[in-house]
Design a binder for these strands. Structure first.
Length: 260
DNA sequence: TAGGCCATCTGGTCCT
DNA sequence: AGGACCAGATGGCCTA
């Protein structure tokens, strides 16, 4: 939410409660008409449940089914309202906490944060986070392996050439924020999702246009990197970009669209 | 205008 | 018993 400037947040909990209570008050006095943008806030919805409570206690569609008939009869309409509002409030808080956690996850993800960049959707955030973790794990494994080789005196250290030494190719390429940190990467969300979406494509050559980095980025040829140890079976297809080498998802239909 | 994304409500289930 | 969690339904907002 913090980086999202194109969307307006829904009314906060206090507003919802205020609108609901106002609607209830109006309903009692014969109110008719729309009040809120949300379903349950509409005086034609929640009051309907409450009306059913007052008009027919044996109706199976009664709200607050968790209450026994005895309890329902003992509770006044206002008490039932209070319970329902309390439950709704808890649920809103729960979802709000979930969104806060999602925002926290977005903050550490390697994509551009700013007013001009649309916020990652929830599903995109989760998919990207998974990819990111897999990439970091793989890089760590490669670093460990190369360090072991260095200690054994098998590899000479060098940078930039074919014999790049014990630095993971991914790090040398600088395609992910292991060196500069997430805030230094300005990845467009669209390009990130393009990576996840094109799972069935196969890199034709190592100079393929990068779908992770900023549009137009083309990486110099590199030898293929083994990602076979990354990800679940069937998820081994890679980004055509020789920088990223990201494992991809096996279900393109589950990958969300990312509007500009 | 269709589709994607989201917030909210709601009822059911599980857990403490 | 009360709260957490979940999924379905619904409707609003936004973009292509």
């Amino acid at each position: 939410m913090d980086s999202d400037t194109s969307r307006v947040s829904r009314p906060s909990s206090p507003d919802v409660e205020r609108i609901f209570l106002a609607a209830m008050k109006k309903t009692v006095h014969g109110f008719s008409g729309a009040v809120s943008s949300t379903q349950g806030d509409s005086p034609t919805d929640i009051p309907a449940d409450l009306r059913s409570l007052s008009s027919n206690d044996d109706d199976d569609t009664l709200s607050l089914k968790m209450l026994s008939k005895k309890d329902r009869k003992l509770l006044s309409e206002n008490e039932l309202q209070s319970i329902r509002l309390k439950i709704n409030s808890r649920e809103r808080k729960r979802m709000h906490d979930l969104n806060v956690a999602m925002d926290g996850l977005r903050e550490v993800m390697p994509y551009a944060h700013g007013p001009s960049v649309r916020k990652l959707s929830k599903i995109a955030t989760l998919l990207l986070a998974r990819n990111y973790i897999l990439m970091l794990s793989s890089s760590l494994e490669e670093m460990k392996r190369l360090e072991m080789r260095r200690l054994l005196g098998e590899v000479s250290v060098g940078v930039g050439g074919v014999n790049a030494g014990p630095v993971p190719r991914l790090l040398l390429a600088g395609g992910w924020p292991l060196i500069s940190g997430p805030s230094h990467l300005l990845l467009s969300p669209e390009s990130l999702l393009t990576t996840a979406a094109s799972s069935s494509s196969t890199p034709s050559h190592s100079t393929a246009k990068c779908t992770i980095l900023s549009p137009g980025h083309v990486e110099a040829p590199l030898a293929p990197v083994q990602w076979s140890s990354v990800g679940a079976p069937g998820e081994g297809s890679l980004c055509p970009c020789s920088v990223c080498r990201l494992p991809r998802f096996g279900h393109p239909s589950s990958v969300p669209r990312f509007p500009k």
